[in-house]
């Protein structure tokens, strides 16, 4: 991980949704990575999507267009 970059993580209802979110974002040209939900965050599924913090708004808009609910968005 590049320490100079700021990231955000997006949480979803389930791993199924996180997997779809990864595909939707990548198809939209938004770089992202599936990672285990950090231990200190109350999780709704085992995995979440990490994105660049600067792409948060764009990512959430894209996911919403695909009927995906982002349950939490946390800067890390």
């Amino acid at each position: 991980m590049n320490a100079k970059r700021s990231y955000a993580i997006l949480l979803f209802l389930s791993a199924n949704h996180a997997l779809r979110a990864e595909k939707v974002l990548l198809d939209s040209g938004i770089a992202c990575k599936l990672i285990p939900v950090p231990k200190d965050i109350s999780s709704e599924c085992g995995i979440c999507v990490r994105i660049l913090k600067t792409e948060t708004q764009k990512s959430v808009a894209e996911l919403t267009n695909h009927k995906l609910l982002v349950t939490k968005c946390i800067n890390i």
Binding site: A15, L19, I35, P36, C45, G46
Partner: peptide, 9 residues
């Protein structure tokens, strides 16, 4: 969907 490790993903 049961674990967060790379093989599960």
């Amino acid at each position: 969907g049961r674990s967060g490790h790379s093989a599960s993903v």
